[in-house]
Write a protein that binds this DNA or RNA. Structure first.
Length: 441
RNA sequence: CGGGGAGUAGCUCAGCCUGGUAGAGCACCACGUUCGGGACGUGGGGGCCGGAGGUUCGAAUCCUCUCUCCCCGACCA
């Protein structure tokens, strides 16, 4: 993509309404634009990041054998009345009347709808275990939206739902999601820590929040350093190896990890040796629940067991805040110059900077490099405008692409270009060919 | 929902107290000079001063109502 042909409205100054760094940087980098309180339009650059994150979430869900589907944003109130949540959910639910005066709502979550889908299509134990998910926009009419996309009213969420014949089987689904979540966040370059959580309005009795480490996070966290050092991506997972999954989950659930709300200084001191104590801040990006038959009973989602008994199906739900992750990643990864994207979620892999857009040799070299990078399938943002070098560097640093390939007349005389890594800022002069092979690797 | 603050150019803001017909910096456009970390000069474009009423010869400015946004608190993916 050429910057000259792109819609990239970056700002030099920080818009006054943004108070936290991720929100400021998202606005400055031209990723989003606020449409109204807690509701955002995703501009081309931001949308690319959102899609990258969504795709990682999707791949890790698919890997567990969870089936992707899509439920609507607008739901009928009927099912919610059946489950009892039409009243319970309160003001946070956006209620709508259609032209026939039917009560509709913009879905804040989808337990009711998925349960209805399940009960209509599943009859017996042969139909479970079953895992389904979708990635869809949700609306929760928060009293006070803030922090940009981190706590919007409209947000993109991945929500998965599990259906099992009994608790033991449901636990396997829970463990699959637990491990999938660890992998998902690790792939985005984040350290995610599962913490025991309250089950909240969704209900149930087995629940973990996944908190990622970020110095500017909302909640204070206390945990064992082993969480941070464990590399979940080091070995492949076999989601059919139930015992293996349990081992991983057991490992993580045994270690101390609590937010300030549940923190117990004494227990922390007793359970965790001093050199392994980690205190920091974090942001919640995922939440998993087992809630048994809370919805299947009132909504009548029953299946027949091998013994010809009719039992309510055991369920769990598993959420990841996809749009929140965009902000959370920036909170976890930025510096004084701007965003520092972890490569897997970066909107482009490399920014190609032509330092002298009026110089024929520079133009020729850049056009050649641009064509070759694209041919190699490398996502490249080509800064081809006639601007001052300083302005180009500043903008490139702001939007935080992992690599900058800098082409200027001075280097070209010696047959070299400069390859700079955004994280850490190491620069290296090398020939065009070796720069290209480095970036294509 | 309680408490506070703010709406003036794309962004950051001044002007408001003490009414006289719209400003600065950045951004944008043109030309020229520049060019390895947000360049410089000259010229230019852009605003029903959030909206509605009122007071007044005259309102960005005073009064009333209203909408929106932000912050703190309670609440939450």
């Amino acid at each position: 993509m050429r910057v000259s042909r792109y819609f990239l409205p970056t700002l030099k100054e920080t818009p006054s309404e943004a108070k936290i760094v991720s929100h400021q940087l998202m606005l400055r980098a031209g990723m989003v634009r606020q449409a109204s309180a807690g509701i955002y339009s995703w501009l081309p650059l931001g949308f690319r990041v959102l899609k990258k994150i969504e795709q990682i979430v999707r791949e890790e869900q698919d890997r567990t054998g969870c089936h992707e589907m899509l439920m609507p944003t607008i739901q009928s109130a009927d099912l919610w009345k059946q489950s009892g949540r039409y009243e319970d959910y309160g003001e946070e639910m956006l209620r709508i009347l259609d032209r026939h005066q039917h009560e509709m709502l913009y879905g804040p979550t989808n337990e009711e709808l998925i349960t209805d889908i399940f009960r209509a299509g599943a009859r017996s134990y042969r139909d479970v275990p079953l895992l389904m998910y979708h990635i869809q926009w949700k609306f929760r009419d928060e009293v006070r939206p803030r922090f940009g996309v981190m706590r919007g009213r409209e947000f993109l969420m991945k929500d998965a739902y599990s259906f099992d014949m009994n608790y033991e089987s449901a636990l396997v689904a829970y463990n699959k999601m637990f491990v999938a979540y660890l992998r998902t966040f690790a792939r985005m370059g984040l350290k995610a820590i599962p913490m025991e959580a309250e089950t909240g309005p969704i209900g149930g009795n087995l629940s973990h929040e996944f908190i990622i480490l970020a110095d500017t996070g909302e909640s204070e966290i206390f945990c064992d350093r082993d969480f941070i050092e464990y590399d979940v991506l080091a070995s492949a997972v076999d989601y059919d190896d139930h015992a293996g999954l349990e081992k991983v989950v057991d490992y993580f659930t045994r270690l101390y990890a609590r937010t300030d709300e549940k923190h117990d200084a004494e227990a922390f001191a007793n359970e965790v040796p001093e050199q392994r104590r980690y205190e920091g801040r974090g942001i919640e990006v995922g939440h998993i629940f087992y809630f048994g038959t809370k919805y299947s009973e009132p909504l009548g989602a029953f299946i027949t067991t091998p013994d010809d008994e009719r039992v309510p199906v055991h369920m769990g739900s598993y959420g990841i805040g996809v749009s929140r992750l965009v902000g959370a990643i920036i909170e976890a990864s930025h510096d004084e110059n701007g965003i520092v994207w972890p490569e897997p979620v970066a909107p482009f892999k490399v920014g190609l900077i032509n330092l002298r857009a009026t110089d024929d040799a520079c133009v020729k070299a850049c056009e050649d490099i641009y064509a070759r990078l694209r041919a190699a399938g490398v996502e490249v943002l080509f800064e081809d405008r006639d601007e001052s070098p300083g302005a180009k560097f500043a903008q490139m640093d702001l939007i935080g692409l992992p690599w900058q390939l800098i082409v200027g007349p001075r280097g070209l005389k010696n047959g070299v270009v400069e390859l700079k890594r955004r994280a850490g800022g190491e620069r290296e002069e090398l020939s065009i060919d070796s720069a290209l092979s480095r970036l294509s690797a």
